[in-house]
Write a protein that binds this DNA or RNA. Structure first.
Length: 824
RNA sequence: GCCGGGGUGGCGGAAUUGGUAGACGCAAGGGACUUAAAAUCCCUCGGCGGGCAACUGCCGUGUCGGUUCGAGUCCGACCCUCGGCACCA
């Protein structure tokens, strides 16, 4: 490495130490100042930070520093999402205690973050595995229990055999485990659920409020996930059984066409329905076969439809018709009521099923064109596929002739009146299963007492401490299950013998409220200090990866709404603005060990320094887009910093008169400010700075080199401005240059410059001349020229005259100060 | 299938409200400096054509059409691509 290059190692360490010593990033409530809460998603301490983290945190740091310089009281905290399976897996594999593993990782990663020069208030650091933190996760759990939002249920749940634990619906991606990508199966298990569905409507409605600050993509994903649909629930009485099967449909206009019905193999009424039919054996076998199939196979859209007749019939409540009850593999227990009415003429799945098993098909909706024609011949026998569109009702008793939309309304009312069903709204969103059959997580604060049943731990006894003296049993079970010290507990109510719950909470609980805890991280009376959260919340800008679009971001909204309803906080939406940054890729693929395309941040920092790493990442791509890593691009960023360094350090004694200097300076201020503030387009902000530097070099080169000691004050001013504008992006080198310029005090405390419109006003402007839509010339004119003046100037221009010579001007458009368009 | 991004030079990207397409950077080529190299500095750099030259003409933002004096930008149809959801009743 050449000696001419600046010494980033020394400089970066120097300023990191100084910022830390002077506590320049410490945040405190100050009602006289406007607050700005900037947050990046906290990392899981997996070992080392990766380039995705570097990008995420660099973007955040630019904004934090920028806002700070603009005079905002900035809260910019960092912490650790410290519970989770990898710690436990490391323990099993390498014999390290999960706590030890986690804490070691935290301390290494913290060092790495500090080396990047990130402006965090480290005094607010939290780790979710600390009892002082998870105590409050438990507190919130009990609050939810009190409010009836927590319940225990036995049912079919998503099971990952590799992680040996249950997964929430949100954590199953395409039938695979979100963490380890193993196939997920259904397993009947008892566990704890949070009633996020109680908030479905609010969470959906909130999406509208967020539309100005969240990107469309995330909101659409959340809306789809919540999956609201309007329809009706209808009870189909079962023949010879004092029971009814409840179905959900969005097409109650097709009720008369329901010629059979299908239940999910997991439906709780199955065993009752098959009792005494003589079909019990085969049906049971079918049901258990289907249940045992992979979730992935189950949900693949093109899998063959399979079913079996239960031997029992139901009554279509609209026409009293006796219809067969089947079990079908495509009916999902987790959607709607777990049972459907089958209308083969108007639903493609039902159609295929009916064709396969020879079940009756009856048309009850006529397409409008056919209905209006003489023929009216949509024939069920000739039907090649279901007609799923809207039309007019036929074969539907008193509802014949109505159009679908009207019929849905009228039939809905009829169901209400007759007490056979009701209009309803259905959500795809399911309750959140939070029980994890693992060790390294927040203990669920309830006990089982033989006399009192399930009893929550009293608030004053929290936290329920996760024991650390544990051994991992060879059977793969949680070390808590047989840990007598942990399990044996006296019932808080009757003081008798009781058993502590051994499931731990889903780690997504920890991250559902950490942003609140940052506002008062050491508060001892409640999860959050209400005054502190009232001052800081909501988060003004949240930054993180899109992969959490429906996981963390939905859960966090749910928790915030709940805590608002409980009176703990005043905020109802936690994140006003959300920026989802793209991935860091190399050679067209996500960085991964298996592809061998991983770039280690440590190596980059060692070779080029943090400022270069930051600059490259910010300059190469706008934040939302994927960033293609390029070693040559990094070189380029480093080259630029050295170029700036030379510019600043070499302006020894020059007198440089230049009339454009101040204008360029202020234009750059304007461009950089607007690009950061309004668009987060750091790449174009940096390119404007690069142009500025290029211009300064030119001006310097054209200057009169003299022996004197006077440095032109405007040039000096320009250099100082350049340093300030660079500082959010490359803070270390900027501070160093600031100091070298003889400025007093930390650059970080310098106010962000504002531009003066009077300097950026041009006296001369360029008017583009188009003839028949093609650019044919440019003319210079005074900035205050009026429309007539422009016309005159254009028409008297020699070149333009040539183009229009001998032709008639048919039209002439003048765009003030910009352009003239002539049609000949 | 549904929903949402996106398609601009060799590459990353710019063009913010319909008004000079390709800023800035990377790569490449040429030159200066050097014994030589590195570093640095200067020049060229969308395609095709014309000119000794300062220059200049035509074409060009996935495809086809439309609106407009003027379209990368707006409208319609289509193609490709990435992402999400998906037997959702």
């Amino acid at each position: 490495m050449s000696e001419q290059n600046y010494n980033f190692k020394e400089i970066e360490l120097k300023w990191q130490k100084r910022w830390e010593k002077e506590k320049v990033f410490k945040a405190a409530e100050d009602l006289t100042k406007k607050k700005y809460y900037l947050l990046e998603m906290f990392p899981y301490p997996s070992g080392k930070i990766h380039m995705g983290h570097v990008r995420n945190y660099t973007i955040g740091d630019v904004l934090a520093r920028f806002k700070r310089m603009q005079g905002y009281n900035v809260l910019h905290p960092m912490g650790w999402d410290a519970f989770g399976l990898p710690a436990e897996n490391a323990a099993i594999k390498h014999g390290v205690h999960p706590a030890r593993w986690t804490m070691d990782n935290i301390s290494y990663m913290k060092k790495q973050l500090k080396m990047l020069g990130l402006s965090y208030d480290w005094e607010r650091e939290i780790a979710t595995c600390h009892p002082e933190y998870y105590k409050w996760s438990q507190w919130i759990f009990i609050k939810m229990l009190e409010k009836g939002l927590v319940y225990r249920k036995k049912g079919f749940v998503n099971w990952c055999d590799s992680c040996r634990t249950v997964l929430a619906n949100e954590q199953v991606e395409g039938g695979l485990c979100w963490r380890c990508e193993s196939v997920v199966t259904q397993k009947e298990l008892e566990g704890w659920f949070l009633k996020i569905t109680d908030y479905a409507e609010e969470l959906l409605a909130g999406c509208e409020k967020l539309s100005s600050g969240w990107n469309e993509r995330v909101l659409t994903m959340q809306k789809n996930w919540i999956g609201k649909s309007y329809g009706a629930e209808v009870d189909f009485p079962v023949e010879d059984l004092n029971k009814a099967i409840k179905i959900f449909t969005t097409r109650q206009d097709t009720l008369f066409g329901a010629t059979f019905m299908c239940m999910s193999p997991e439906h709780p009424l199955v065993s009752e329905i098959i009792k005494g039919t003589g079909y019990e054996g085969v049906v049971r076998q079918f049901a258990s076969e289907i249940s045992r199939e992979d979730k992935r196979m189950r949900v693949a859209a093109d899998i063959e439809k399979k079913g079996i007749f239960t031997g029992r019939h139901a009554i279509n409540p609209m026409n009293g018709e006796k219809i067969q009850i089947w079990l079908a593999n495509f009916v999902l227990i987790e959607y709607g009521t777990g049972a459907i009415m089958s209308v083969p003429a108007h639903d493609q799945r039902d159609f295929e099923f009916a064709k396969k098993y020879n079940l009756p098909i009856r048309i009850v909706i006529m397409p409008k064109q056919i209905f209006n024609s003489e023929l009216q011949t949509l024939n069920s026998k000739l039907l090649k596929e279901a007609f799923i569109g809207e039309g007019y009702l036929v074969n539907s008793g008193q509802f014949n002739g109505l159009d679908s939309r009207e019929a849905r309304d009228k039939i809905g009312n009829y169901l209400n009146d007759k007490g056979i069903g009701k209009k309803t709204v259905n959500y795809r969103l399911r309750d959140w299963g939070i029980s994890r059959q693992r060790y390294w997580g927040t203990p669920i604060p309830v006990i089982y007492c033989e006399r009192c049943g399930i009893v929550p731990i009293p608030y004053e006894d929290l936290p329920v401490i996760l024991p650390t003296d544990i051994d991992f049993p060879p059977d793969g079970k949680s070390p808590l299950v047989n840990n007598d010290k942990f399990i044996k507990i006296n019932c808080p109510k009757c003081k008798g013998e009781a058993r502590q719950e051994t499931d731990t909470m889903d780690t997504f609980i920890c991250s559902s409220w950490y942003f609140l805890r940052y506002t008062s991280p050491r508060f001892e009376d409640y999860p959050v200090n209400k005054e502190a959260s009232a001052y800081w919340m909501p988060v003004d800008q949240y930054i993180g990866g899109i992969e959490h679009a429906v996981l963390h971001l939905l859960y966090a909204r749910f928790f915030t709404k709940f805590l608002k309803d409980t009176g703990v906080v005043e905020t109802d939406e936690p994140f006003t603005n959300l920026l989802t940054q793209g991935m860091v890729v190399k050679d067209g693929a996500k960085m991964s060990k298996s592809k061998g395309n991983v770039v280690d941040p440590d190596d980059i920092i060692d070779k080029y320094g943090a400022d270069t790493a930051r600059l490259f990442i910010l300059f190469t791509s706008p934040p939302e887009k994927d960033l293609d890593w390029s070693d040559q691009g990094v070189e380029g960023a480093y080259r630029f910093l050295n170029r700036v360094w030379r510019l600043v350090t070499s302006q020894e004694s020059e007198k440089i008169p230049n009339s454009q200097l101040r204008k360029i300076t202020h234009l750059t201020i304007k461009k950089v400010t607007e690009d950061i503030e309004e668009r987060f387009h750091f790449n174009t902000a940096i390119s404007a700075i690069m142009e500025f530097v290029n211009a300064l070099y030119q001006i310097q080169g054209s200057g009169v080199r003299g022996q004197g000691s006077e440095v032109n004050s405007e040039f000096r001013e320009a250099i100082n401005t350049l340093i300030i504008l660079l500082s959010p992006f490359v803070p270390h080198i900027a501070e160093e240059m600031w100091e070298m310029m003889g400025n007093k005090g930390n650059l970080i405390k310098e106010p962000w410059p504002s531009y003066d419109p009077k300097f950026i006003k041009s006296e001369e402007i360029t008017i583009v001349v188009q003839i028949n839509g093609k650019v044919r010339g440019r003319i210079m004119a005074g900035a205050d020229i009026d429309e007539e003046g422009i016309k005159k100037a254009v028409l008297s221009d020699e070149k333009i005259k040539e183009w229009i010579a001998g032709k008639e001007i048919k039209k002439l458009v003048v765009v003030p100060k910009k352009l003239v368009s002539i049609v000949v």
